[in-house]
């Protein structure tokens, strides 16, 4: 097929003369008729014909491409394309190239990611690094693209390529330490990588890393939650590790952006952490001047301050306060 022929409408193209297009059946009284463009109608009419006839041919493959470019969300077209690719034994590396081309314009399209997964699964471990590079490109455009992250996790688990993943998370967090997706991926790597030895083996270095990130931006919700996650199923170590309580103290002493430091200290206290005078002084110095008389109980004092500095969630902090045991 030359370029001239390709431009012809299908109905005038001799290559398609043997096919009778099948129009869409909307019923006699369509409730929500859609104003399709003529090119879309024609392409889909011919698609229905080849789909119905199970025509696995190069021209049908070309037609699915046209249909996909008109509407990349049509999962039936994608499915049929996979059947044709299988039947014709097309080199899937080429298909992967083609996919990269259309992904950039459709970064959140479920079908495109799913199709890519189908190809990569067939090509196997050889394409692991290629696929990790591809998601890297997509994450360069949008570092929080949920589809790209989901796909990247699948590639790591199915095809491997864990070697540089922790480093990649670090790189993304250097670019934006508020990127919750990167923190989540870091947890995924630390708990799931076959090369790192698991959460407990990684805890010490990860705590150090996280504490540094917190001290740079104490208002950042993600590393605080990550820090807690590093002690999953091990609250005893969490309470007794001086690195956890001391990062709270450092942030409190700096007297700015201390909501998460206060809430973490509150959690520690609720789990049995014994605070010394230094903590009490640091909390006391944050007490708003116009507030009620000081609470003798440290946990209650923290709740009172949080009610003041985080008014959006005043009901939550009141609930936390009421939940505290009568006297600690």
């Amino acid at each position: 097929m030359d370029a001239e022929e390709q431009k012809l409408p299908l109905s005038q193209n001799p290559e398609w003369a043997d096919v009778t297009p099948i129009p869409q059946d909307d019923g006699p009284n369509p409730v929500v008729p859609i104003a399709y463009k003529p090119e879309f109608i024609e392409t889909m009419d011919y698609f229905r014909a080849v789909y119905k006839a199970n025509e696995f041919s190069p021209r049908a493959l070309q037609l699915t491409l046209q249909a996909i470019l008109l509407n990349p969300g049509n999962y039936t077209v994608w499915h049929f394309r996979r059947l044709i690719l299988d039947a014709l034994g097309i080199d899937l590396n080429e298909e992967l190239e083609f996919m990269s081309g259309i992904s950039e314009n459709n970064p959140k399209n479920y079908q495109i990611w799913h199709h890519r997964r189908w190809i990569a699964e067939k090509l196997g471990t050889d394409v692991a690094s290629k696929e990790l590079d591809f998601t890297k490109e997509m994450l360069f455009l949008d570092a929080k693209n949920y589809h790209a992250w989901s796909y990247r996790q699948w590639v790591l688990q199915t095809l491997g390529g864990w070697e540089n993943e922790l480093n990649y998370c670090h790189q993304l967090l250097e670019e934006d330490v508020f990127n919750n997706s990167a923190w989540n991926q870091r947890y995924f790597v630390v708990t799931g990588s076959p090369l790192l030895g698991g959460l407990e083996a990684m805890r010490e270095s990860e705590v150090k890393y996280t504490v540094e990130a917190i001290l740079r931006s104490p208002e950042n919700e993600s590393p605080w939650r990550y820090l807690r996650g590093l002690y999953k199923n091990d609250p005893k170590s969490w309470i007794s590790d001086p690195q956890v309580s001391s990062v709270c103290l450092k942030v409190l002493s700096a007297k700015a952006n201390h909501v998460f430091a206060l809430s973490t200290l509150l959690d520690l206290l609720s789990h049995g952490f014994q605070a010394n005078q230094e903590f009490k002084d640091a909390v006391d110095s944050l007490r708003p001047s116009n507030s009620d008389p000081p609470d003798s109980d440290l946990a209650k004092a923290i709740c009172s301050i949080l009610r003041h500095v985080d008014p959006m969630r005043v009901n939550y902090w009141t609930w936390r306060k009421n939940k505290l045991p009568l006297s600690v």
Partner: peptide
Amino acid sequence: KNVDGGFGCTPGGESH
């Protein structure tokens, strides 16, 4: 389920 209490699309997926 994730350590922040939320849920993701598959095990290990970010809470959303």
